[in-house]
Amino acid sequence: GSKLPPGWEKRMSRSSGRVYYFNHITNASQWERPSG
């Protein structure tokens, strides 16, 4: 298991139950796992 880039964390969408990734530094969110 590799770590996520700085700022990123795994989140669960309440509406759909899907996992997404959220960056608390930039407030960005995306479905794809961030690389870096």
Rank of each mutant, 00 (worst) to 15 (best):
G1I: 11
G1W: 05
G1N: 11
G1K: 10
G1F: 09
G1R: 07
G1E: 14
G1H: 12
G1M: 10
S2M: 11
S2A: 12
S2K: 10
S2G: 12
S2Q: 11
S2Y: 13
S2T: 12
S2L: 11
S2I: 12
S2R: 09
S2V: 11
K3L: 12
K3W: 12
K3Q: 13
K3F: 11
K3N: 14
K3A: 14
K3S: 14
K3T: 13
K3P: 14
L4N: 02
L4F: 03
L4V: 03
L4G: 03
L4C: 01
L4R: 03
P5D: 03
P5W: 03
P5F: 03
P5A: 05
P5H: 04
P5S: 04
P5K: 02
P6G: 07
P6S: 08
P6F: 14
P6E: 10
P6T: 08
G7Q: 05
G7F: 07
G7L: 02
G7Y: 06
G7V: 03
G7N: 07
G7S: 04
W8H: 01
W8F: 01
W8A: 00
W8P: 01
W8G: 00
W8N: 00
W8K: 00
W8S: 00
E9R: 06
E9D: 03
E9Y: 05
E9Q: 08
E9A: 05
E9F: 04
E9L: 06
E9G: 05
E9W: 04
K10R: 13
K10I: 14
K10T: 09
K10D: 02
K10C: 09
K10G: 04
R11N: 02
R11Q: 04
R11F: 07
R11H: 07
R11K: 08
R11D: 02
R11P: 01
R11E: 03
R11A: 03
R11Y: 07
R11L: 07
R11M: 06
R11S: 03
M12K: 14
M12W: 15
M12V: 15
M12P: 06
M12F: 15
M12G: 04
M12I: 15
M12H: 12
M12Q: 11
M12S: 09
S13N: 09
S13A: 11
S13M: 10
S13P: 02
S13Q: 13
S13L: 12
S13R: 04
S13H: 15
R14F: 13
R14Q: 14
R14I: 15
R14Y: 12
R14W: 11
R14T: 15
R14H: 15
R14P: 15
R14D: 13
S15N: 13
S15L: 12
S15W: 11
S15P: 13
S15F: 13
S15A: 11
S15V: 14
S15G: 10
S15E: 14
S15Q: 11
S15T: 14
S15C: 14
S15K: 15
S16R: 07
S16Q: 10
S16W: 08
S16Y: 09
S16H: 11
S16F: 08
S16V: 06
S16E: 10
S16L: 08
S16I: 05
S16G: 08
G17R: 07
G17K: 10
G17L: 05
G17S: 06
G17N: 09
G17E: 04
G17Q: 08
G17V: 04
R18V: 06
R18M: 06
R18T: 06
R18P: 01
R18D: 04
R18E: 07
R18A: 05
V19Q: 06
V19S: 07
V19T: 09
V19L: 07
V19M: 09
V19K: 04
V19H: 09
V19G: 02
V19I: 13
Y20R: 01
Y20I: 02
Y20E: 03
Y20V: 02
Y20W: 07
Y20S: 00
Y20T: 00
Y20G: 02
Y20N: 00
Y20L: 02
Y21P: 00
Y21A: 00
Y21K: 01
Y21M: 00
Y21I: 00
Y21T: 00
Y21W: 07
Y21D: 00
F22P: 01
F22E: 01
F22N: 01
F22D: 00
F22A: 01
F22Q: 02
F22L: 04
F22W: 08
F22Y: 14
N23I: 03
N23M: 02
N23C: 07
N23D: 03
N23K: 01
N23E: 01
N23G: 00
N23V: 01
N23F: 03
N23T: 01
H24Q: 09
H24I: 14
H24R: 14
H24L: 13
H24V: 15
H24A: 10
H24M: 10
H24N: 11
H24Y: 14
I25T: 08
I25R: 08
I25N: 08
I25A: 08
I25G: 06
I25Q: 09
I25V: 11
I25P: 03
I25H: 09
I25E: 09
T26R: 03
T26L: 06
T26W: 05
T26M: 04
T26D: 03
T26I: 04
T26H: 04
T26Y: 06
T26Q: 05
T26A: 04
T26N: 05
T26V: 03
T26S: 08
N27Q: 13
N27T: 06
N27V: 04
N27A: 08
N27F: 09
N27S: 09
N27M: 13
N27E: 07
N27Y: 12
N27R: 14
A28N: 09
A28T: 14
A28K: 15
A28P: 01
A28S: 12
A28V: 15
A28F: 10
A28L: 13
A28D: 06
A28G: 06
S29D: 02
S29V: 15
S29H: 11
S29L: 14
S29P: 02
S29M: 15
S29I: 15
S29N: 05
S29Q: 09
S29E: 07
Q30S: 08
Q30E: 02
Q30R: 04
Q30D: 02
Q30F: 04
Q30L: 04
Q30V: 05
Q30W: 04
Q30Y: 05
Q30M: 05
W31E: 06
W31N: 07
W31Q: 05
W31V: 07
W31R: 08
W31M: 05
W31H: 05
W31I: 08
W31A: 05
E32T: 09
E32Y: 08
E32A: 10
E32R: 08
E32V: 07
E32P: 07
E32L: 08
E32Q: 10
E32I: 07
E32H: 12
R33Q: 08
R33M: 10
R33I: 12
R33A: 10
R33C: 05
R33G: 03
R33T: 10
R33N: 09
R33V: 12
R33P: 12
P34L: 01
P34A: 02
P34D: 01
P34E: 02
P34K: 01
P34H: 01
P34I: 01
S35M: 12
S35D: 13
S35V: 13
S35P: 10
S35Y: 11
S35A: 11
S35N: 11
S35T: 13
S35H: 11
G36F: 14
G36N: 11
G36M: 11
G36V: 12
G36L: 12
G36H: 12
G36K: 09
G36P: 11
G36D: 13
G36R: 10
G36Q: 12
